[in-house]
């Protein structure tokens, strides 16, 4: 038995050596290009060479498409190539925003867009508030002196790693008409519910499932925030006779605020972008009761026989504007988060 740790250690060193060798080989190979380049351009201009690969990919696949997207939004038809697309100015946006009554999606020309917008609003509001509250409670429970904290922390985090398709299928199986949840309902004397055929139920479960899938991530961030609060503050409070509730209100909440803002903004942005889980779980149904904004863009541009790229682009420009506002919000509260990041 004594030989085993040695063997493991030797294996580790061997593996470490291997990784180091591969790393050095790869970097030296890239150096065959970068080192002569330095002689050519000088030390100071090397900075441009270092940003170049990232900048190229960024420009071609993010920046240029963003600009092109605005042009797409001002053209119409099913042709993918910009030169084949007739320019229509703001017509797509006009069509997108035309409603006789903004409270009722049925009166809008693009009724599915407005339904998706409303669904996204409902989804974001309930999902984000539910997520923040549940993550906060969970992180506070995990921050107590408990046995096997590492295990419980991992339990809550595990679903974060599951892919959205897997998450959706797990819950589709549980929630289906003859599923285990209905069996439990029947067992306690309630009527079974066809969750996926009722708009309100479907939206409720879409929200709950996405909280289930992502809460572990935010719990971890909040837990880190809680653990960075010095214990002396609570000790001092205890000496002064502070109650648990008072300690929570006057010590925990204020000091956790920067972390809370990070969690709030991150979960907000993710919620606005939600697509995968909902798409596989409900397909946007019943009807369009759970169709969210990104799914509308996908369906309009790709999930149909006659794609309307212009309309999809106009909708995504709108969504992009909303996200930009959220990002600016993130930068405004960034004071706290940047300290947290560093």
């Amino acid at each position: 038995m004594a030989a085993t740790p040695n063997a493991v250690q030797r294996l580790n060193t061997l593996a470490g050596d291997g990784v180091q060798r591969v790393y050095a080989l790869a970097m030296n190979t890239l150096g065959l290009f970068m080192e002569p380049a330095q002689k050519l351009v000088g030390v100071r201009r090397m900075a441009y060479l270092f940003v170049l690969p990232n900048l190229l990919v960024f420009a071609i696949f993010i920046l240029f498409p963003m600009l092109l997207n605005v042009y797409y939004a001002m053209t119409e038809g099913g042709n993918l190539y910009p030169q084949d697309r007739p320019f229509v100015g703001a017509a797509n946006f006009e069509r997108l925003y035309t409603c006789t009554d903004y409270g009722d999606p049925n009166t809008c020309l693009e009724d599915r867009f407005w339904r998706a917008a409303r669904n996204t609003g409902v989804f974001v509001f309930f999902q984000v508030s539910g997520m923040v509250i549940i993550s906060l409670i969970t992180s506070m429970v995990l921050n107590r002196k408990i046995v096997a904290r590492g295990f419980f922390r991992s339990v809550y985090f595990y679903p974060v790693l599951l892919s959205p398709v897997v998450v959706a299928l797990i819950w589709k199986w549980i929630l289906q008409r003859d599923g285990v949840l209905n069996a439990i309902l029947v067992a306690v004397g309630l009527d079974p519910v066809n969750f996926m055929l009722d708009g309100t139920w479907a939206m409720t479960w879409v929200i709950l499932v996405s909280i289930w899938a992502h809460m572990g991530f935010y719990t971890l961030i909040l837990l880190a925030g809680l653990q960075s609060i010095p214990a002396e503050l609570y000790d001092a409070g205890a000496i002064d006779g502070t109650s648990t509730m008072q300690a929570f209100r006057h010590i925990t909440l204020p000091l956790l605020m920067p972390t809370m803002m990070v969690v709030l903004v991150l979960s907000l942005i993710r919620a606005v972008q939600m697509f995968d889980e909902v798409f596989v779980l409900t397909g946007g149904g019943p009807g369009s009761a759970t169709m969210l904004m990104v799914q509308y863009i996908y369906m309009t541009g790709f999930g149909t026989q006659n794609p309307r790229f212009g309309m999809a682009a106009a909708a995504s420009v709108t969504l992009g504007a909303v996200l930009l506002v959220a990002t600016l919000l993130q930068l405004r509260v960034g004071r706290g988060s940047e300290r947290h990041l560093a």
């Binding site: 498409p65 963003m66 092109l68 997207n69 993918l80 190539y81 972008q273 992009g320």
Partner: peptide, 23 residues
């Protein structure tokens, strides 16, 4: 460069599906 990167920090690929598809 840094500002442009920060500005796009939160823009997901799903917002620019059509043009990235073209590229």
């Amino acid at each position: 460069i840094f500002l442009v990167i920060i500005a796009t920090l939160m823009i997901p690929i799903s917002v620019i599906l059509v043009p990235v598809y073209l590229v």
